[in-house]
Simulated assay, not measured.
Amino acid sequence: MVLNGKTAVVTGSNSGIGLGVAREIARAGANVVLNSFTDREEDHALAAEIAKEFGVEARYIQADMSDGEQCRALIEKAGDCDVLVNNAGIQHVAPIDEFPMDKWNAIIAINLNSVFHTTAAALPKMRTAGWGRVINIASAHGLTASPFKSAYVAAKHGVVGMTKTVALETAEEPITCNAICPGYVLTPLVEAQIPDTMEKYNMGREEVIKKVMLERQPSREFATVEQLGGTTVFLASDAAAQITGTTISVDGGWTAL
């Protein structure tokens, strides 16, 4: 229970990577604040389930991460914020000359601008507490690029750059800032894409995963949300107190190519 007594805010955490990270942080003993843009009974039920399973405090706070004021309000409503995990993100794929302006603006707002706003709001709380961790869920696309993903690649490269800046600004304080760069992760969203891809390529499940979906991931295996959660817990722990301003790739060797 390496995070006993700490409170973690995880943006975009009512499903997928964010929920997996929140669960592992709770498993490590921290209280957690879940977030997304919806405000449904099932969102609050997720928090209740985590609280019951891990014996921690857990809350759900609705906030639209495309809105800077709501990003900052989330941190204020959370109260304590010892660990900030910036995970919220969206994606759209199109050639740059056909990329819709509204999609570009939304991706930059949610994937990049929100990181600025939540971090700016959280750092004073961490300084008051005398301890803090900012952990940004970037992407392999924060270190490399793919065609047709201009906004996502630009945003994630920006997250990596901001991570370094925050680390330098807090280098003489007991606060660290790092980025995790996942490759392809087996989330419910990805799982739902497999049947259609099987039909499109007339392949079996394992063949589609290894030859199509994981073509750029040398391990030919998805990362899991539990692995990303474990990496997050490590970066939040005292063992990582001298790790700051860096990226940790969880990508099966993708960025080694």
Score class of each variant (00 low, 15 high):
V93W: 09
T119Q: 12
D64E: 09
T119C: 12
S66P: 04
G130E: 11
M65I: 04
K77D: 13
W104G: 02
C81W: 04
E53H: 00
G132V: 10
S66A: 14
A58Q: 12
L84W: 07
G55V: 03
A63C: 05
G68N: 13
H117M: 12
H117D: 11
D80N: 14
D64P: 05
I96N: 13
E57V: 12
I108T: 03
A129R: 14
A129M: 11
R133I: 14
A58R: 07
L112A: 07
F99S: 15
E53F: 00
D67V: 15
C81K: 03
E98I: 03
H92M: 00
I75Q: 06
I107G: 01
S114C: 12
V56Q: 04
Y60R: 10
F99R: 12
W131M: 06
A78P: 01
E49W: 08
V134Q: 07
H117W: 14
W104D: 01
I135R: 04
D64T: 06
A121Q: 09
K125P: 08
T119I: 10
K77L: 13
K103H: 04
E53P: 00
L74K: 10
R72G: 12
E57G: 14
H117P: 08
I110W: 11
A47P: 00
A122C: 08
Y60V: 09
A94K: 08
M126D: 04
N113A: 13
N86M: 11
K52M: 01
A106F: 01
G55T: 03
A78S: 06
G132T: 06
E98D: 14
Q62T: 11
W131R: 06
W104C: 01
D97H: 13
M126C: 04
H92Q: 00
E49T: 15
